[in-house]
Design a protein around this nucleic acid. Structure first.
Length: 395
DNA sequence: TCTGGGGTCCTAGGACCC
DNA sequence: TCTGGGGTCCTAGGACCC
């Protein structure tokens, strides 16, 4: 087995609520919910003071208000959260280059060069305090030798938790937990697992059956490994690139008025195409989502001839989809998304390289394989290209 | 007063080409 | 000739996460 890595997962506690309290200190110590305070609103995030009343994420706002009449709703300032998140990630990246951002408020670090089991606790406690004094952000930190365990560890104690999972500790900490607490196991999977008698992480770790294999499918090995303290420990700094952009609106009142729906689609297209442009990205696929008053959600997509970020083209495509499949029912939510987003530069480069490839072929038609391979190795891919003969000799 | 919004990954089937 | 199979792209939807 190769050397154990020091993997750290950091999670900003009740992140949106923290941001709101930081810009408005009068909210400090009060039950705060970020979300819409209207008939169709839900709680996006809430402060720990609100959680004491049983309020939690994804709860309809009116229910939350019932549980906690003093609950203070604050609007969703996404650009503020984005800025704070960016500052946080940048701050860490300056100190520790091997950082993988997984969402707006979470990241992994590979700190193998800085800490090991013996000094991790003090080091990370210091880091946690520093993050608070420098950025005024509270976080929970998990330390382990795999990403899965580090993630579970940061979740183990909140807020301001610090949990180290070394050696066999994962058995002590995580095996007794209900199966739903396992990252990656949601409602559907846990229901099936429970039907098989697998109610805790320990039972999953120590089970083996064809039925279980069928239920988990391709994820079987991964989950069993995770539950047994094994798994991925590669922190990839280049991982975080958006692959899709979308926006959706729940209408204040359901409607089947086509003009009204098209107007909503237009606004969403406008907004989505400008986010795309802001990131210097382009996309080929437009996705239109409609949710009806019975909460059935349907999506249809169309591929455009060329990747683009042009509002007109995106809008016309979205409207074409709408005209094609909307049959006149009451609509509750409208969404517009762009899938398979790519860097504009990347697209240009790949187009250039196809051009290059054909001229390359022209130029080199009369050269031998040996000559070509030497030339390729000469340029940017040192030693990467070999002739068949070389490979045989190596064997 | 039932149920937001922004994402990722996987599956599975069809079209099309070789 | 009536029929295989691999690869790739596209599409719709499910499951999950924050």
């Amino acid at each position: 087995m190769s050397k154990l890595k020091s993997i750290v997962h950091i999670d900003l506690n009740a992140f949106f609520a923290q941001c709101e309290v930081n810009i408005n200190p009068s909210l400090k110590g009060k039950p705060v919910a970020v979300g819409g305070d209207h008939r169709r609103g839900i709680v996006s995030t809430c402060s720990y003071e609100a959680r004491k009343y049983g309020v939690h994420s994804a709860m309809p706002s009116y229910q939350a208000k019932k549980l906690c009449p003093d609950l203070i709703f604050v609007g969703e300032h996404y650009s503020l959260y984005g800025e704070v998140s960016h500052r946080f990630m940048h701050y860490l990246k300056e100190k520790y280059p091997i950082l993988e951002q997984v969402s707006i408020d979470e990241c992994y670090l590979d700190l193998t060069d800085y800490i090991d089991d013996s000094n991790a606790y003090d080091y990370l406690r210091d880091l946690q305090i520093q993050i608070y004094s420098d950025l005024h952000l509270k976080c929970s930190i998990g330390y382990a030798h795999t990403k899965f365990l580090a993630k579970m560890a940061s979740d183990y104690r909140k807020p301001l938790g610090l949990t180290l999972v070394t050696g066999d500790k994962y058995k002590e900490y995580f095996w007794p937990l209900e199966i739903e607490k396992m990252w990656g196991v949601g409602k559907q999977t846990s229901k099936k697992l429970r039907e098989m008698g697998i109610t805790t992480i320990e039972k999953l770790a120590t089970s083996e059956s064809i039925e279980l294999k069928e239920t988990l499918g391709i994820m079987y090995d991964t989950y069993i490994n995770w539950a047994n303290g094994k798994g991925n420990d590669v922190v990839d700094p280049n991982y975080y690139k958006r692959k899709s952009i979308s926006e959706a609106t729940t209408l204040y009142k359901d409607t089947d008025d086509e003009d009204e729906l098209k107007e909503v689609i237009r606004k969403l297209c406008k907004s989505v195409s400008s986010s795309l442009q802001l990131e210097n990205s382009v996309s080929k696929t437009v996705v239109l989502t409609l949710r009806d008053s019975k909460f059935n959600t349907r999506s249809k997509r169309k591929t455009m001839p060329e990747p683009t970020s042009d509002y007109e083209k995106i809008y016309l495509t979205a409207i074409a989809i709408f005209n094609e499949f909307y049959t006149g029912y009451l609509v509750r939510l409208v969404g517009v998304g762009l899938d398979n987003t790519k860097d504009e530069e990347e697209i240009k480069n790949s187009m250039q390289s196809t051009l290059f490839d054909s001229s390359f072929e022209e130029k080199n038609r009369n050269k031998s394989n040996r000559e070509l391979i030497e030339e390729l190795n000469d340029t940017k891919h040192k030693g990467m290209f070999k002739t068949l003969k070389d490979l045989e000799e190596e064997k």
